[in-house]
């Protein structure tokens, strides 16, 4: 069996002396693992850095086999973000989240397009712009995984104005008035996540990530084998807060 696809490197684990088991998020084959001979050797190691976009060819005798990848670099973002701590932390966080949350070999075209947009923003956009893209990417990821936030109207009163909180139980928006008795238990809903919300400040980004982080942890990571948010995301959050 053989197929060719576009892919984004999520992680690479050394296997034996020079081989590597590489995890890619591919456009048509979802999160897919494969063996790369020589993948952890001196020459190829640079290719299999998280965030790199590659053209991949997979070979395997049967579809359920691990199979082998041979990859060609399409574009690299790694060299552009390596010297920028915040962007690098965001890239690591995004790759670790995808690696930990997506099932194997399930097709998620929207998530693939989303991470490509995020990578492009990380490489070329101003700080607040890529941070906004990052938060919206996590919101989109929750949506694709079936735990989307419903931010159209207040869950309690149905009003569409003054939405400032998210219910941690349902993921639905709550207005300021309706949230008053439970304000301390509510998650923040920064205005930039609402239609026409404008550009956020750094504080709003942190608030947005607090909300998406809680929902990811509760719905995706806690029930998974990992049992907690990946360290890379926690480090990104710490860096943003500092």
């Amino acid at each position: 069996m053989k197929w060719c696809d576009e892919g984004i490197v999520l992680s690479s684990r050394k296997h034996g002396e020079t081989a590597a088991i590489v995890t890619l998020l591919t456009r048509s084959h979802g999160r897919h693992l494969g063996l790369v001979r020589g993948g952890s050797g001196r020459r190829a190691r640079g290719l299999y850095q998280p965030g790199n976009c590659v053209y991949v060819t997979w070979h395997g005798r049967l579809p359920e086999h691990l199979g082998t990848f041979s990859c060609e670099l399409e574009s690299t973002v790694t060299s552009e973000v390596l010297h920028e701590p915040m962007r690098l932390a965001a890239l690591c966080s995004a790759c670790a989240i995808l690696d930990a949350s997506l099932p194997e070999r399930e097709n998620y075209v929207a998530i693939f397009e989303g991470i490509r947009l995020l990578i492009k923003a990380l490489a070329h956009e101003e700080d607040l712009v890529w941070m906004t893209v990052y938060v919206k990417w996590e919101v989109g990821l929750l949506q694709e995984l079936g735990f989307g936030l419903d931010l159209k109207a207040c869950a309690a009163t149905g009003v569409t104005k003054d939405l400032a909180f998210v219910s941690p139980k349902t993921g639905r928006a709550v207005s300021i008035n309706a949230a008053k008795p439970y304000e301390s238990k509510m998650l923040p809903l920064p205005a930039f996540l609402l239609p026409g919300g404008g550009m956020p400040a750094r504080f709003d980004i942190v608030q947005g990530l607090r909300t998406t982080g809680y929902m990811l942890n509760k719905n995706v990571f806690y029930p998974s084998a990992l049992g907690r948010t990946p360290d890379a995301r926690a480090r990104f959050m710490d860096r943003l807060k500092a």
């Binding site: 640079g46 390596l82 701590p85 690098l88 932390a89 690591c92 890379a232 480090r235 500092a242």
Partner: peptide, 15 residues
Amino acid sequence: SLTVDGQTTAHYITD
């Protein structure tokens, strides 16, 4: 190293 892990470690130590 000039890898994602190597530079993440370097930034962490810098902090």
